[in-house]
Nucleic acid binder design. Structure first.
Lengths: 227, 227
DNA sequence: GTCTATATGCTGATAGAC
DNA sequence: GTCTATCAGCATATAGAC
């Protein structure tokens, strides 16, 4: 369900470079697009951008190789649409940190939101991480800018909580990094602590447990009064 | 200084597949090998395995393209030697967790060791992270096994501390993931929280500050008595 | 819109002169 | 040991029939 929303978003906001000039997308076309996008996310996540071949994406999607290029015009555009499908949701998650909310409550909501994104789009989320790791060179510039802006805003919000004594006096930037990195690590490796996170999607119960654990471990460090 | 040690390690333990049958490596050969290995680590870190071309590595190293293949025989072997140069040090870091030590002291030492590895071999460390993220498919099997064994041992050690009441009752596996992920995130993004960690190596002062911050944030969550 | 066949460029690896 | 020239294979992308 959420996945289809994502696909729609990606279709309604194609990369500016090559806007498809279709008026009314046919039903089979829409379905193929959605299918290819999902398969591409999984393949990019497993092999990375360069190692992924459009032939493989086409084969796994059950469509001829040329159709992938017809629908998405280029490998890079396909990749960026996969990224698009999670970037907006990450921005929304950061927006949960607002200075007029209760800090611990907001932080726990952020953790939960991020884990929910990862649960519904595990592959695209992993593609996003890999892209960040390699310097976000293929992330469209406006996305990079909006992300940086939102992050700065989130850090300022944490700092405001610290200044008003609602959070312990830790470095706001480090706190945000910790929350981000920890949630992502749970997504990548789960409780298994091995690198075989690809073999199966994390179950819902596992993720609820993760929310509790992250909150317990990370948020206890910022409680006021334990300094 | 530490960098050269690393290179030596990689040369003295070449991938079993193609052991070079040289008796006394000539001085220019050794120097070229070391140089290529360093350049390769940086390039693999920035672009990933598939996107890295041997032509680029050769050009940046200032040697003819064919020499890279002569020295390392294959792209995959070159890549695995880069991985080799950090795997052993990570194993040593995990070994710092011993049940007969003081938990907080040992954990802080682990954090410091990991950040020190990342400071002396930032590129190889990032290659290692990317390899883990993609399922550790190219990590030699014996390395994977030793890592998993060491991780299991570390988790058992944490559990022993928890059972004996020296640590708060958190999930041992989650605690290890948190420590690992947080230290790695500092390495990748530093205090900047942006994706431009490649532009400059983190300074020593920055890393000491990171050790303090990680310890403060993560370790406070496992203090006994604040439950 | 859909698909087959093909063009073009670049890669890893090697053969063989020096 | 070192390097130039080259091979064989595969990738993305497109042209053009249906």
């Amino acid at each position: 369900m959420l996945y289809l929303d994502t696909v729609d978003v990606a279709n309604e906001a194609p990369c500016a470079a090559h806007r498809v000039t279709e008026k009314k997308p046919n039903e089979p076309g829409r379905r193929n697009r959605a299918l290819i996008l999902r398969v591409a996310a999984r393949t990019f996540a497993r092999k990375g951008f360069a190692a992924t071949t459009l032939s493989e994406v086409a084969e796994l999607s059950g469509v001829p190789k040329a159709n992938v290029n017809y629908y998405f015009h280029s490998k890079q555009n396909l990749y960026q649409q996969v990224l698009d499908s999670v970037t907006q949701r990450y921005l929304d998650a950061f927006a949960l940190l607002r200075a007029d909310h209760d800090p611990l409550d907001a932080l726990e909501r952020l953790i939960r939101a991020k884990l929910r994104i990862i649960r519904s789009q595990p592959w695209a989320a992993k593609v996003f991480v890999a892209e960040m790791l390699h310097g976000a060179r293929q992330l469209p510039a406006d996305h990079t800018g909006r992300l940086q802006g939102e992050i700065q805003r989130a850090v300022a919000c944490l700092q405001a909580w610290i200044d008003s004594g609602q959070l312990a006096a830790v470095d706001a930037r480090y706190l945000l990094v910790t929350v981000w990195a920890t949630t992502q690590a749970y997504a990548n490796f789960g409780a298994r602590l091995t690198a075989d996170a690809y073999k199966d999607k994390a179950s819902g119960a596992e993720l609820d447990e993760a929310v509790a654990s992250v909150s317990r471990l990370v948020l206890r460090g910022v409680l006021v009064g334990t300094q």
